[in-house]
Design a protein around this nucleic acid. Structure first.
Length: 240
DNA sequence: ATGTCACGCATGGCGTGA
């Protein structure tokens, strides 16, 4: 929470899409966030996962939906969406998948397929996709041979989400390959300070409604530093 | 080097899920 409040104070976003809130519904710090000027729309699943939309006071919020039609486990709390000032936006935490022969990998592919079914209803899908779209988004592809996050099956399904929804990868609109924009670094082995990251957190935006209005897309690496950082850094997206 | 992190459990370390 100290880092979240620091983030809200520093960047004053209209909307913050959170993943891995890791608390049950009763524990979600609605009051503390309200004190900071943000309304919470959250789907909380207890010890793991959990997603939320934090909306700055004064913006209109309607039609929240908790969970994703077709996902394997609603209780895992990996998807929440709402309409905010006319923009339909989802915060998502795609299952990690662990290993390609594990049940959670199959669950991950199913989740991505369910996202593609839902994508046409969304203007923005933001969150931890747990998929690196391209080898440029991986510090060393040879390390990930045979691993999750980079398989053709995952990348094909992520591309299908964008195709189905008419969405584009906001970071890549303003920062084409081969520019590197990692959003996650393992806590171990000093990966962050050695530049060993992945770009697995994406903001997908409607190609016609939003992409032409993009003003800036960037990653605030400072939030991966300091006291008790997340292992992810926030991706900041602004449009006019 | 699986070298980090946080948490629940019934501790004083181990399993879990990143």
């Amino acid at each position: 929470m100290p880092r979240v409040l620091e983030f809200l104070g520093q960047h004053a976003p209209d909307v913050a899409c959170l993943q891995e809130t890791k608390c049950d519904a009763q524990q979600f710090p609605e009051a503390e966030l309200a004190q900071a000027g943000y309304r919470s729309i959250h789907h909380s699943g207890g010890r793991w996962a959990g997603v939320a939309l934090l909306v700055r006071d004064g913006l209109d919020v309607s039609d929240p939906v908790y969970g994703l039609q077709g996902e394997v486990a609603h209780d895992e709390a990996r998807w929440v969406e709402a309409t905010i000032d006319g923009v339909r936006i989802a915060s998502v935490y795609v299952p990690n998948g662990r290993e390609v022969d594990s049940p959670t990998y199959a669950e991950k592919l199913t989740f991505l397929e369910a996202m593609a079914q839902r994508a046409p209803q969304l203007d923005v899908i933001a969150g931890d996709m747990n998929v690196a779209p391209s080898d440029v988004d991986v510090y060393d592809p040879s390390v990930f041979e045979g691993a999750t996050h980079v398989t053709a099956a995952e990348r094909t399904r992520l591309a299908a989400v964008m195709q189905a929804g008419g969405l584009v990868d906001a970071y890549r609109v303003l920062h084409p390959e081969p520019e590197v924009g990692y959003t996650w670094w393992d806590y171990r082995q000093g990966h962050f300070h050695r530049g060993m990251g992945l770009r697995i957190d994406l903001v997908l935006v409607d190609a016609e409604k939003i992409a032409p209005r993009l003003r800036s897309v960037g990653i605030d690496r400072d939030f991966r530093k300091g006291a008790k950082p997340s292992d992810h850094a926030p991706l900041l997206v602004a449009w006019s």
